[in-house]
């Protein structure tokens, strides 16, 4: 095995292995998070960008590894570097998590509590591989992991029911408030004199959806067609006849092309 290098292409190298028994040493590569697009959740002076993280590694594990450099505020995993699309849920629910499955290797953003942690990490010198799985916070693998997942997937229904009830009560309240608000605004002109048409009033406006719009255009077209006269004038007759022959010719031409294509595909060799 090659001697562990300290840095590669601007990344710092951190040797790790799964546990004491394992012989395979993996390397995490990390550097200071510094990109043009600013993201408020990843302040550049406190965020570390880590790559080459195997799938089984979890937040807790990284938090523990980097805590020797300074207090870690939070850890995010992403499939690819960039601005994360899923904002952290405002309200954490025990039962209804927005699962964001990351397949295979992933990258992580480690956010320290203060900038010194980042500086420490950049300078840190690793003597020997760190352990990913320890006695206190083990990482399960294989059968064990799946068993655990299985057990975790069975929720406590009474707790869940309670949470649902709360959520729904809350939701209903919000809905009610909104409705009250709209009824209040119904028919009331705003400062510019515009009146917002809602679906609540005596004459509810048609919802502005794509479906309704296409429906309207089709209806209009139909109406227009009704008023038109077909095959009334002589020239129309002639025209339609000509059109008919042209159509036949066109189809004939198309068929010929098809035949050529079929021939190329050796479609006429029966045996």
């Amino acid at each position: 095995m090659a001697a562990p290098m300290n840095s590669v292409a601007g990344f710092k190298v951190m040797p790790v292995k799964l546990n004491n028994k394992s012989d395979v040493v993996r390397y995490f590569y990390y550097k200071e998070h510094n990109v043009r697009e600013k993201d408020s959740s990843k302040p550049s002076d406190r965020t570390l960008f880590v790559v080459n993280i195997p799938a089984y590694c979890n937040e807790e594990c990284l938090q523990r590894l980097f805590s020797q450099c300074g207090t870690v505020e939070s850890v995010h995993f992403q499939q690819k570097p960039g601005i994360s699309k899923t904002k952290t849920a405002v309200e954490e629910s025990t039962f209804f998590k927005q699962v964001n499955l990351i397949k295979g290797y992933k990258v992580a953003y480690v956010i320290f509590k203060n900038p010194s942690g980042l500086q420490n990490a950049k300078k840190f010198n690793y003597k020997q591989p760190l352990l990913l799985s320890t006695e206190e916070s083990p990482i399960f693998a294989g059968m064990k992991k799946w068993c655990k997942e299985y057990i975790d997937s069975i929720p406590d229904t009474t707790e869940m029911q309670k949470e649902i009830d709360e959520y729904m009560a809350n939701y209903d309240r919000q809905e009610l408030e909104e409705e009250e608000k709209t009824t209040e605004l119904e028919g009331v002109a705003d400062s510019d004199g515009w009146i917002t048409v809602t679906r609540k009033g005596r004459k509810p406006g048609l919802a502005r959806t794509e479906v309704n719009q296409t429906k309207a255009t089709v209806q209009e077209k139909k109406k227009r067609e009704k008023t038109e006269l077909l095959n009334f004038y002589r020239f129309q007759f002639r025209e339609s006849k000509r059109e008919h022959i042209a159509q036949l010719r066109k189809r004939f031409e198309e068929d010929k092309e098809k035949i050529v294509a079929m021939k190329a595909a050796r479609k006429f060799k029966p045996y």
Binding site: L18, P54, A55, Y56, K103, G104, A141, G142, M143, K145
Partner: peptide
Amino acid sequence: VNFDPAEKYL
């Protein structure tokens, strides 16, 4: 069942 998950993910 004995498969290593790392390998599996690889």
